[in-house]
Design a protein around this nucleic acid. Structure first.
Lengths: 170, 170
DNA sequence: TATTGTTATACTCTATAACTATA
DNA sequence: TATAGTTATAGAGTATAACAATA
């Protein structure tokens, strides 16, 4: 299952550019998979990947999330979360409500329809990924998860502004 | 360096959803890093990530590439590669030329300016990534590369149409 | 004054299909 | 007829800044 061709071709160099090569491989892999998942989500459920992400975040929080928190967790700017959420509200998947205690704050939460729709999406999504990774050793998946988490952690501490460090748990 | 908090919090389940969790982690990680790299590329070099990708592909091919091949390698549709390449031509980073033997074919290749600009970009890009991954064990990077390649290979064989399988070597 | 969210704007990317010219 | 590339179009994402309402 290992692509010996690529290895033999000198893809793995002990030398200097492993970081770059790994990054490019990560990027092309996620792009490839994202495109297919996006296509399937659109065809089967008529949602985009960022919309799916918003729904996933809200699904974890039965009481809903402030738009600012949603913005942090999805890594979508405040200005753009508005339109994203608006489209989902139009489709009846979530509702927005202003807080009484602080009328500047808007909380978004899933409707019943949104919740059940998301669960259908998540189920399909999960089975697509299981199919994709069916030949991977479970140990390898766990190890991958932890190392990718290391990289993410480094990115959070070295790339992101320190005050944005909270939300992104994924 | 391992994020014990996340592990302790039950992020790694022996059970059933490791594939999904790994995917979400991959996705949020590449998104986080992409956003920062995109920001830096725009500020320092005034290019987007897809444009950088096009330049990288052309940089490997001194004689240039047919737009169709470029389209495959970057995973950008034929229709959209046109505009992408046009912007780069306007900026003087590449030129398009029709083939004499077959006047349907257009070949894009870097100009001298494009080549030297890309080399500056690639150098900066590489140092950003080295900084990001400076604490990662080189063995781990190699192992990550090979396992991510496995996943990419699975995606290529299971997701993509069989006739599009050639180009995507990254 | 600071914060929350909205609006506005400009650009780019993505997906699809119809179209042109060449073969 | 088939192929390579372009054009057209619609919808979204992305980044920034200005703005209104509220605190």
């Amino acid at each position: 299952m290992l692509n010996d061709l690529e290895l033999a071709a000198g893809d793995v160099q002990g030398g200097g550019k492993m970081e770059l090569r790994l990054w490019l491989r990560l990027l092309s892999t996620t792009k490839l998979i994202s495109q297919e998942l996006r296509r399937r989500l659109r065809i089967e459920f008529n949602v985009t990947l960022p919309q799916f992400d918003v729904l996933a975040q809200l699904h974890r929080e039965p009481d809903g999330l402030r738009l600012g928190d949603l913005s942090q967790r999805t890594m979508v700017t405040n200005g753009n979360i508005t339109g994203l959420v608006e489209r989902l509200e139009t489709d009846g998947l979530l509702v927005r409500e202003r807080l009484r205690e602080d009328r500047r704050v808007t909380v978004a939460r899933l409707t019943e329809h949104g919740r059940s729709e998301f669960e259908r999406m998540a189920h399909a999504h999960e089975s697509w990924l299981k199919e994709l990774m069916r030949d991977m050793d479970p140990e390898v998946l766990t190890s991958l998860f932890s190392h990718v988490s290391e990289i993410k952690h480094a990115a959070l501490t070295r790339f992101a502004a320190t005050d944005e460090l909270d939300g992104a748990l994924d």
